[in-house]
């Protein structure tokens, strides 16, 4: 049963191919992230369990409370042109770790509360939307 163990012990930490593949993978994904963020969001859509329940424009500071159920809630805050989850009492609170965003098609997810916030807008033919 020690054959794999011995084999690993004798192996080199990395292969020549790794020097190519792994950084390439990192750069490729970093590039994909970079390209997929067009920027310039104008409003945030709030979906609860797949259904759109609220739209918040990003140019007005405001807050919206989403009640998941008895006493469980998320507070979605728009401030300084960006949206974030400022308070959540869900099991993991991962949603509160997202940095405030205003990039179109970026999203914030609270999985335990089935909440998805998507930033949209900016891509239309108008010089300004009022």
């Amino acid at each position: 049963m020690g054959s794999l163990f011995r084999a690993v012990k004798e192996s080199k930490p990395f292969k020549k191919a790794d020097l190519l593949i792994i950084p390439l993978l990192m750069l490729a994904s970093a590039l994909a992230i970079f390209l997929l963020s067009p920027g310039g969001g104008s409003y945030a859509e709030i979906y609860a369990d797949g259904k759109l329940v609220r739209v918040m424009p990003l140019d007005v500071d405001a807050e919206f409370v989403y009640h998941f159920d008895e006493g469980r809630k998320n507070v979605i805050t728009v401030k300084g042109g960006k949206v974030s989850v400022s308070y959540a009492d869900c099991a993991d609170k991962i949603c509160t770790h997202y940095p405030p965003t205003d990039r179109a098609s970026s999203s914030i997810i609270c999985l335990p509360h089935k909440l998805v916030i998507i930033v949209r807008g900016g891509e239309n033919e108008y010089d300004g939307v009022v």
Binding site: L25, M26, A30, A32, I33, L36, G50, L111, K114, V116
Partner: peptide, 20 residues
């Protein structure tokens, strides 16, 4: 769980995180 394609936008992000 969420049934929203939007979630898949995170694939490149978590790939980079996973690589690191």
């Amino acid at each position: 769980l969420l049934n929203m394609a939007q979630v898949l936008c995170y694939v490149p992000v978590v790939t980079l995180a996973g690589a690191i």
